[in-house]
Design a protein around this nucleic acid. Sequence first.
RNA 1: GGGGGUGUAGCUCAGUUGGUUAGAGCGAUCGCCUGUCACGCGAUAGGUCGAGGGUUCGAGUCCCUUCACUCCCGCCA
Length: 594
Amino acid sequence: MNKYRSHNCNELRKKDVDSKVHLSGWINKKRDHGNLLFIDLRDNYGITQCIIDKENSCFSLLEKIQLETVIKIEGNVVSRSKETINEEIQTGEIEVVINSFEVLGSCKELPMPVFSDQEYAEEIRLKYRFLDLRRKKIHENIILRSKVISFIRAEMTKLGFLEYQTPILTSSSPEGARDFLVPSRLNPGKFYALPQAPQQFKQLIMVSGFDKYFQIAPCFRDEDARADRSPGEFYQLDLEMSFVEQEDVFNVVETLLVNTFRKFSSKKLMFNKFPKISYKDSMLKYGTDKPDLRNPLIINDVTEIFSREDVSLDIFKKLIKSGSKVRCIITKNTKDKPRSFFDTIDKWAKDEGASGMAYFTIEKNNEISAKGPVGKFFSKESLEEIMKKTGAEVGDSIFFACNTKRELERITSLARDKIAKDLDLIDENAFAFCWIVNYPMYEKDEETKKIKFSHNPFSMPQGNIDEINFEKPLEILAYQYDIVCNGIELSSGAIRNHIPELMYKLFSIAGYNKEQVNKKFSGMISALSYGAPPHGGIAPGIDRIVMLLANEKNIREVTMFPMNQNAQDLMMNAPSEVNDDQLKELNLTLKFKK
RNA sequence: GGGGGUGUAGCUCAGUUGGUUAGAGCGAUCGCCUGUCACGCGAUAGGUCGAGGGUUCGAGUCCCUUCACUCCCGCCA
């Protein structure tokens, strides 16, 4: 028998009464009654209440021992009297009467309590992460993460995918995020980069004929953090398939995500078959390419209404003449909402930098009319047209914003969230997945006015290659897709462009000549020239999937050893200075900015 | 790079219009308590009020600068 434990701390039950056991674990909590002492002994599996009284010679020693000390106890399992059963813990019907104990790991005074549901400053949590991770909620989150990853591996294997590793030291990529660089000792003045994603490698795996690849892949991007974005590193379920069309990728990912979310969450899935929304529609109806479909509100463009003569809202008419559009959000049956509801939203919009939101409520006495500050500017006929166009009914209210397209998208998207929140329209107990499809291949850089790739430069443009009008690049769509869940972007993917000539053509539109492409993507271009299969894939973010399943808003709550916002590991003291010899060996000298 | 929030005991926080010796709960230490499960009761220790400067008879409180953490914008093909 193992010398540390005969059972773990979540194993003993009524049937074990009268047996002699030894348990090891942390002292989670002590309740000292002077002549009687309760100790909650905790390990990864659970808690067992242990008890000792004054008669035992160990009593006074145990009484003095610090919480979080690791001890081993030996004792007898006894059943608890009916009144003292604790239904909160699984071992609550029994307790262990301690005969003897031994300290296995002593504990200094704690910088932060482990036994507490209170929230603590990140700084101290991260510095003492090993203590923080003992706490129930985050401990369970990390275990959930492990289980989710195991499950995904098994599902992927079932679906016929094989897991392959790709290099961590690779070359810097010209596009995209900032790279983490690693100096090469053997190649003075040259640097490796940590992969932002195994993008090129997974395509090379397809060219190498492996057909179905996946990997729980670490990705490194040197960009600033957010609540849902770790600085430095994160994990993707990276996958790629040969001889597939978009639908084949969709089927794999939908199966996987539906199975995963069904298994690890009790929340309902609003759609088992994920709706597909084109990028263009999404930007119009939701103002964003990451719509939260739990939110039933829809945005409508009603610019045309304002060309009518019987609509006299001149401010809007004037703005429209100079290129603005009008979009609106309908709220159902809000006729009885107090004035403050409407004014709060108008004021909110002004705070958000818009010029406010005009609104009215549709009423019907003898005939249709609009009640509200701007209601008088709309004729009965124009209201009927609005109702026809937007599906609004008597009793509904309409909020309008008028602005440039880009600004409208921003404000209506925010307004959709804001109004839905105020009206409590979002079902927190649901997951709403969707696909966003038909992304444009290119977009115009607002600053430089140049054409650039809007997403992934390796994506395949849509349509018959001979018929693509390269003269109008902004109209070219790509086989490029995102998965969104509850307004969170979970992943993006694409059918790849496996035709070198087409690749050169597409890059030339974005301002790269053939030589530049050859130089920057030498491995890829070369590989595509030696018989590349049509292929495509996607890469769902593991951290964000676990966040959704664990119902956490912050990625650090599902990451074992995260860095803080300044990309520092407060526990390990990373990054840190290195000594001169190390720098010398790498041919590096330090020269600080200003 | 920019904007917001926070910073007071080991931890979580309170601290009024600027006014005597800066408080509470948890934790620590000591004492009492044989059925608790956030055990209870009593006592003690513990403070550069993030740091620096300024205003003032007097600053935790007002002003300026700065630092740290955090949230957001930029950024994240």
